[in-house]
């Protein structure tokens, strides 16, 4: 039994409770005791660093102080929290604590072999793309990510669970993050592109380890922005584009020239978006997955049933 400091962050206490519950179940199964920081506060996420540099670091620093008192390791599952804590640690040196993200934490060789030993139900037949998003990787000066443009830690985890990992080149593309609230049209555009790419990679689901990535991909598939708003977005965006700056990542299926949301950009056949810990728990046969599936906007139960996994 080892003990690890745990900083859940606001998302895991609210909209992403299934991430928290599944992580706890997995840790319990692997003999890891999560010691939640006493009276932790919000890390400030993107709002704090947008409006006040100092507030952003102050908020994160208070948690670092708590973490040092709790132990030498700190697990911060939310990508945004992870990034803010690492940033504060780099800017205000002296807090001796190793800050871990879920993928890195569980993909170390000894954890992987432990995971393989305890596997109850390999997830054979599931085809998935790993989606890392931005903030666990970039910028490497802050995150210490060994391969920020092509991470592999979640790939290793998924393979250990028996999942067929599909190759795609969108592992670390942005989902739009917190723009979801104020500009859902932009997030929908980014997420549509990701979902289409996942479908082209012949995946039947997307795996994430970030509450914002999960929510954005899940919600944007479930809710579509009205066409009128979309059209005005397309109108605004094109004339301002200077020469030579075509879309960095052309949408698959388009000629690769236009960045505007394609007509009928909504996907036919939605892809469930899982947290890696949900799938780990499913494969380990622990926790209450049925409760988690209910919370998804795109219901994963038909897919799981089709692949022969129990859904109750």
């Amino acid at each position: 039994m080892i003990q690890v400091g745990y900083y859940p962050g606001c998302a895991l206490h609210g909209t992403a409770a299934e991430f928290d519950e599944s992580l706890r179940a997995v840790c319990h199964a692997l003999d890891i005791r999560l010691a939640e920081l006493q009276d932790w506060n919000c890390c400030g996420a993107s709002s704090a660093h947008s409006l006040d540099d100092q507030l952003a670091v102050d908020l994160a620093e208070r948690n670092l102080r708590l973490a040092v008192q709790t132990g030498p390791d700190l697990l911060a599952p939310c990508a945004a929290c992870f990034h803010r804590l690492k940033t504060a640690q780099k800017q205000r040196p002296g807090y001796e604590v190793a800050i871990w993200h879920v993928n890195e934490f569980f993909s170390r060789p000894e954890r992987l072999s432990q995971l393989r030993r305890r596997l109850q139900r390999p997830l054979q037949g599931l085809r998935a793309v790993p989606y890392y998003g931005c903030l666990t990787q970039r910028q490497p000066k802050i995150t210490d990510a060994p391969q920020p443009e092509w991470p592999t830690s979640m790939d290793l985890l998924m393979e250990a669970l028996g999942i067929q990992v599909r190759r795609w080149s969108y592992k670390t593309d942005c989902c739009g993050g917190s723009l979801e609230v104020a500009r859902p049209d932009l997030v929908e555009h980014l997420c549509n592109r990701l979902v289409r790419a996942a479908q082209e990679a012949d995946a039947d689901c997307i795996v994430t380890a970030c509450p914002m990535c999960q929510a954005n991909l899940d919600i944007s598939q479930a809710m579509a922005v009205p066409m009128a708003q979309k059209a005005s977005l397309a109108l605004q965006s094109e004339p301002n584009r200077p020469e030579g700056t075509s879309s960095p990542l052309p949408s698959p299926g388009q000629a690769g020239l236009s960045n505007r949301p394609a007509e009928g950009a909504t996907t036919n056949g939605h892809l469930p978006v899982f947290y890696i810990t949900e799938l780990m728990a499913l494969a380990l046969g622990v926790g209450k997955p049925a409760r988690w599936w209910q919370r998804h906007m795109i219901d994963p139960r038909p897919l799981l049933a089709q692949k022969g996994f129990p859904i109750e």
Partner: peptide, 13 residues
């Protein structure tokens, strides 16, 4: 600019 995912909504690159 070439790697930025949001250029489609920006007025200045």
């Amino acid at each position: 600019t070439n790697g930025c995912p949001l250029t489609f909504a920006m007025d200045l690159m």
